[in-house]
Design a protein around this nucleic acid. Structure first.
Lengths: 134, 134
DNA sequence: ATTTGTAATGTTATATTATAACACCTACTC
DNA sequence: GAGTAGGTGTTATAATATAACATTACAAAT
């Protein structure tokens, strides 16, 4: 079990919004949602997000410039997580894969590269949206 | 051999700058470099970049909001490419790995997810920078 | 050779995402 | 209590990206 140094008010509010959301939220979308709780500036959101992402409680989707709560359905120590992002409906699936993880670690290691974080993001259409003709 | 429908002037200029660069360039850095060639607005760069990235001649680094020329040292048809990005010196290594690629395709396929593009970006320190004490 | 379709261009304006800098506060340690 | 490490609130600004519109270039088809 990892320590969970309790969150400050701002961090907790941001995390709650992310958890309640059905998809990724941008920092500014979060800001708008949190105005009623006294948030007034982007930095309040960005600072909370920095803490949350460092703690692994939230993830940043680099290709979207948006954030999601961690789904938690993978090992606690897994810190290489992949995402499948539907370009139509915005739905995001989070998953971890040791083979992929090992393979990338390996490639990096063999070159003396010290990895700190890794982003893996698959863009496309989820099953439901792929069915639709458009 | 894939067709290579020749590039327009703007596209060629942008690609040349990317190829000449020692590291990733932002769209605005490209714009500044290309002002002497008549570029005046961000869109001129972004449009050229869209064509180049779609053609696989350049890549967008999502976690950096920047662009690099394709190194070309992987198979022509490989469209799942990974990057190791040094946070200290900015150096970027590009590589392709079929195991990783297959594994991700597989995960997606098993869920009916139709992948269109995938970003894999490892952030950290390259061998040279990892040696330094700081 | 003209028509037609597709994509690229140039331009202005604006939207979106992210950080710098500073003053103050809070909680904890020594 | 002094020191310190991180969090907060605020204003201002930087950096990244796209919308909308009029025009132009070019290749394929007739």
């Amino acid at each position: 079990m990892a320590e969970s140094p309790k969150l400050t008010r701002n961090q907790r509010l941001v995390l709650e919004k992310l958890e309640a959301a059905s998809g990724p939220l941008s920092a500014y979308a979060l800001l708008d949602e949190l105005r009623e709780h006294g948030f007034r500036a982007p930095l309040q959101v960005y600072r909370a997000l920095r803490v949350l992402t460092n703690a692994g409680k939230a993830h940043r989707l680099e290709s979207l410039n948006a954030f999601v709560a961690c789904c938690g359905s993978h090992g606690e120590d897994t810190d290489m997580v992949a995402f499948a992002i539907c370009d139509d409906c915005g739905h995001v699936s989070e998953f971890a894969d040791d083979v992929v993880s090992d393979r990338l670690q390996n490639w990096a290691g063999s070159r003396g590269f010290e990895a700190s974080t890794t982003a893996i993001e698959i863009r496309g259409k989820c099953r439901d949206c792929a069915r639709v003709v458009n």
